[in-house]
Structure formats: C-alpha cells, structure tokens
Nucleic acid binder design. Structure first.
Lengths: 349, 349
DNA sequence: CCTCACATGGCAAACGTTTGCCAATATTTG
DNA sequence: CAAATATTGGCAAACGTTTGCCATGTGAGG
C-alpha cells in the first residue's frame, strides 16, 4: 500500500525520469535464449553457435543494448578501468602524460579515470583509497606519497609510478643522470663557472633527482653549484626566484621546471636584465610554451607522452604474482633542447 | 580435475596475486553485526546507534575496509561518477574546463572520468555509449555530435554541454555575441577597415558562433569581414594561415583560437612581418602562453574553469523529469584582453 | 547399434553492496 | 502499568552481469 502512494507520481502520466536502459535479460527474452547465452555471445564468441550469436547481436542492437560495465566489473572482478593520478591537471607537463596514458588505455579498450591530487599527499592518498576497489590499476605520476603508503597501495592494486621510484614498485622515470650532465656540460661549454638551481617542492622526487644529478655533473665538470628554494613549480614563483638569482650575481640558473623558468624570464625582462646576455636560464620538461616564450627556453625535454604510454604498458604487463618482486626502473631518454635563453658567460668573447 | 591443474600454480605456496580486500561482510563478522548495519553505519549515520556505529567504524578502520564503489553503484544505481569528454586533453583550453570540472566534482564527493574524443565525432559517440551505463552524467565539451545523437544520449543520462548548444539539452556557453563585438570595436578603434577570420574545424559550434558574431559586429561597425579556412585549431596550421593572410594584404586577422594565433605569430615572425606594425592579430581563449608569446596576444578570454565548474553544477541540479524540457543556456561573460599583438592600422598616425 | 566425445545452451550461484520490511527492544505517553 | 511509539538491528531480495556445471543433441568411431 505504502508503495503505491510512494510511487504514484511516477506511476501517473509523468514521463519516467529517464528511458530505461536495456539489460541482458531484456535481450535474452527478446531473443528467446538464456542470459548466459547473451553474455557469451558478447564475451566468448567461440562458445556459442555463430547463428545464435548473430541473432543475439542483432536483437541486442535493435534494443540499443550496451553491457553495463558496473555489473561486469562486480562479477568478473575486472573493471577495465585504470586510474591516473597527477598533482595538477592544468600543468602542461602532465598534459603529455595524460594524453599518452589516455591513448594507450583506450587502445587497450579500457577506460581512464583521472585524479588531480592538487599537489597534496593527503588528497592523493584519499584518491587511491577511494578509487582502489573500482579500478584495475594505478599510474601515479610524480607521486608525493611516502614509500610505505606506496608499498601498501601496490599490494592491493597493480601500480606503476612515473617519475618517482620506490622500493618494490615498478616505475618509469626520465634519465636525469644523463640529462643533468647535458645541462651542465652545455653551461660549461658556454664558459660558465657556476650556476644556481632553483629548487621545486621539497617532497618532489624528480626535484631531488635533478638536483643530485646537477651536483654530480657539476663536480665532474668543475663547476660550482648553488641552490635556492624551494619554490612552487609555477610561474608565479618566478619573481621571487629571479630576484634571488639577481641578488646572488649568478651567471646561469637552472630552474626546477619550465613553468618556474618562464616566470623567471618574465621577471628578468621586467627588471631589464638581458637573457642570455647577462644571465642564462635553463628549464626542465620542454612544456608547451617553452619554444615561444621570450627568449625561447633552453630546456631538458622529456618524452612525457611516452612516459604515460609506457606506464600503462608496464601496468598491463604486470605479473599477477608481483608481491615483493624487484622491478627494474624503466628509464626514458631525455634530450637537451638548446634555444635562446642560454649564451656565453658575460665578459667572455 | 582440470581445475586443480589449472589453479595449481596459485594453490601452491606462491603468494596470492594481491592481498584480498576486506568486504562489508568481513567487517560485519568481525564487529558481530549484520552487513546491513555496517552499510548503514557508513551511509545512514542517523539510522544506527552511535555506539554501534563507532564500534563498526573502528573495526572497519582496523581491517582497512573501504566500500566497493562498483557494488554500491550496482545496487543503488548511482555511481557517483560523472564523465567529461573533451576533443583533446592536451589543448590548454580544455585543461581549464577539466580543472574546473574536477574541482566541482571532487568537492561534491564524486569521481571524474575523463574521455578524449580525439576531435572525432565517432570516437565521442563510442565513449558516450561505453561510459553511459557506468556514470551518473555527462559533460560534453565542444561536442561534435549531431543534435539527434545528443538528444538520445540526453534521454539515457543527464547531460550538459559546454560551448555547444542543442535543442532540449542544457548548456553552458561563452558570451560570443558580446565578445566578438568587443573584438571588432577594438579593431575599429585602431582604425582598421577590415579583417579576416581564420576559421577552425567546420563542425565546431563555437567556431560558427564566433564567425557569426564577428560578421554581425563587423556589419554594425562598418567593417569588411573575410574568412579563410578551415584550419586545424593548433599551432601547426598557423603557417598556412599566416601565408594566406599575407597574400590577402589584410591589416588585421582574428584566429579561431589562440593556438592557431600563436602559430600565425610564429610564421609572421619567420617571414619578417612586424606585429602589430603591419598586421594585428587577435585570438580566442586566452590560453596558457597567450601572455608570454611574442608579442603577447590580444585575445578574448573565457573563464574556462568556471565553464567546467558551472557545467557540473548544472548537471547535478538537473531535475529528474527533464525529458523534453527546454533549458536556458547558461551564458558566461567573456573579456577582451588587449596585449601587444594589436595596434593601429598601418599608414595611420 | 552402442559408446564416446564434443558442441551448444540453460540453470543457478556468485560478486559486494543497498534497502524495504519486520522483529525486538527501549522510551514515551495516557 | 498498559499501550503506543521510537529506535535499532537483522533478514533477504534485489542490481546486471559472469561462469562453473550440467543436460541435451549431434556426429563419429567401433
């Protein structure tokens, strides 16, 4: 009785909230077969007579049937979905990773769920917890999560890191060792005797790798390397960074990433400092815009799209008995793109 | 028998593929209550004694329990997930929409699924079909889908369009009527007598609106408006576009979007043409980079983040009995950002 | 003609939740 | 103190699939 009342508004001539979607049962009934046959017609083509199959598919088509991924996921345990988590979707650096992952994922017939951790470890962990049971795997780009948390997450879900390494977790990383060496050699070739590094966020793994690489390369090349920061990895932080550089009298500066470098460039222009005449500027990433800022930025390019695609590849290739395994990091080459923001040390021919 | 063989590798002392995730049943058993109580402890706090609830939550925590969104979705019919489909994730214009949508969605406690249609209507339709049964709604940004397909999709899922209008489907659009008028008035004020529009993809709704607005405004202001194209909405197409402009002898050019405009700028610089001395260039969108390209680009800014956020807002506010309703388009203001790429008509004081 | 194997389709039990309904208490009311 | 009413917890039926197992039919080999 209560029901009748409760449902009356719908039962009346009001149109239903939305057209009901056809289910496998509808198709089975219309085709005169069992639901199992319909299911198999879709997922196990060899398991059903091809005439029956053709009939079922035809009926399904006419009913506009599409399998419900949720129900499939629940029963089969596979959601055909992978999650990609990045610190900031708007950062053009991650746009490449996202695009690469998206393409690899959709080529494999899967769906990508995107998470934005807003540069926060807490938010990142929340995403991983929330999404975990609903996805077949994770790609965490530039993860800020502590090793321990990553380890536990990797136990529950296949997980691949991009530009972050952590014991026992597979990862795809850029070859910063060679890359930073290229940068330092380039500066040395231009006659610079020292440079300063404008550090990014303290928890950034790639930031740490970059600085470590720069230091090692500087030692080998006989250059002095200093460090300022940490700075936020975006353009707004460029002003403070540039001012610090100017005060230090450095002739060359390597920024945590291109966003910061571009911010530095703007500030230097504002203060009438000639680049590369007075100061050389190098960035990391070769993001969109690095080639048309002023002056165009010398930067260490990463194949971010490749990184995204390779990460998905690794994820899908992960063996089921992966617990406690040791994984070799997949290292992607970098490339120094020399543009106009670097030049000879001032006062040198 | 066969099974035993098949499963032997797992049945042996090899560690299980992944640690099993705790389910609501595990929690119920450990807490000595029924599964329904656990469920309600999470979703219906008032429906259960707060002491019981505290106990359940504690046990759940100690077991590392997180509700399985898939199962929740299947039973309740709500997936707490919305899908956002864009033509190209890497385009910084859409990055704003994505970010805005992401924030609105995560603030509402939902999950965002991102789809990249790769500028293809077919791919877009495939995404909508595939994702449809698994999400609570769609936001389609710059959709290329025909009205008819949109109508059907809107019957099956709540759906909101961004920068696209279609009968019977709610949408969020930029105010191109005023925006284009601002552009034309700006050019007229600088003494230009005419301009050419560099058109984008033929199926682009916003492209059509932009051109229509420009024509109307030009007529009112007494300017001649010509049109070239269609061009791809990216930098690579800028060269061809710029060459066409140069051949035409135009003094001002309005590009379909900033990406194209920046491409045009590069080509003009390459060919030694002074901007704005010889030609003025205007873009649309005010994307990342428009302020630091050379010269900085005059462009019509849209609040893309707002657009994403508003779209999600509208989606969540959609009444259940939305069939056949008429929806008012939600119009977002635009703003002309005048930078250095526009100047007086050559040969004028 | 009998047996055996294989191809094909159906039955029914999961998968992990939510939720309508009812039963058992605890609390208020008359 | 009885009766009415809240409050609280449990039972069991969904939700739309997949899949192990069984039943039937068909053709081949002996």
């Amino acid at each position: 009785m209560a029901n009748v009342c409760q449902y009356l508004p719908y039962a009346a001539d009001v149109p239903p909230p939305a057209r009901r979607r056809a289910t496998i049962t509808d198709v089975a009934r219309a085709a005169g077969v069992a639901t199992s046959t319909v299911s198999r017609a879709f997922t196990r083509p060899g398991r059903v007579n091809h005439r029956t199959r053709a009939h079922v598919l035809e009926v399904a088509e006419s009913l506009g049937y599409a399998p419900n991924p949720t129900a499939q996921a629940l029963e089969s345990g596979r959601s055909n979905t992978v999650a990609l988590v990045v610190p900031d979707i708007t950062n053009p650096y991650f746009a490449g990773v996202i695009k690469g992952a998206e393409q690899a994922v959709s080529q494999a017939g899967l769906t990508l769920v995107l998470g934005d951790s807003q540069e926060s470890a807490a938010q990142e962990e929340r995403l991983v917890r929330r999404l975990g049971p609903a996805v077949d795997g994770f790609v965490l780009s530039a993860s800020r999560l502590p090793d321990e948390v990553l380890r536990r997450a990797a136990e529950l879900n296949p997980l691949v890191l991009v530009n972050r390494a952590s014991p026992g977790v597979p990862c795809v990383v850029a070859d910063y060792d060679h890359g930073t060496r290229q940068i330092v050699d380039h500066l040395a070739a231009l006659g610079h005797r020292s440079f300063v590094f404008l550090g990014g966020p303290a928890e950034s793994w790639s930031g740490a790798r970059r600085w470590a690489g720069l230091q090692a390369a500087a030692a080998d090349a006989g250059l002095d390397a200093g460090r300022f920061g940490p700075f936020a990895p975006d353009r707004t932080a460029g002003a403070a960074a540039a001012d610090a550089v100017l005060a230090s009298g450095a002739t060359a500066v390597v920024a945590h990433n291109d966003m910061l470098a571009i911010g530095v460039l703007s500030r230097l222009a504002e203060r009438g400092v000639d680049v590369p005449g007075e100061i050389s500027v190098v960035g990391f990433d070769d993001v969109f815009g690095a080639d048309f800022c002023h002056p165009p930025l010398t930067t260490l390019a990463e194949r971010t799209r490749d990184a995204g695609a390779r990460a998905i590849e690794s994820l899908l290739a992960l063996p089921p008995d992966r617990a406690g395994r040791d994984f070799q990091a997949r290292v992607l080459p970098t490339q120094l793109v020399v543009r106009r923001s670097t030049g000879p040390r001032p006062g040198r021919s």
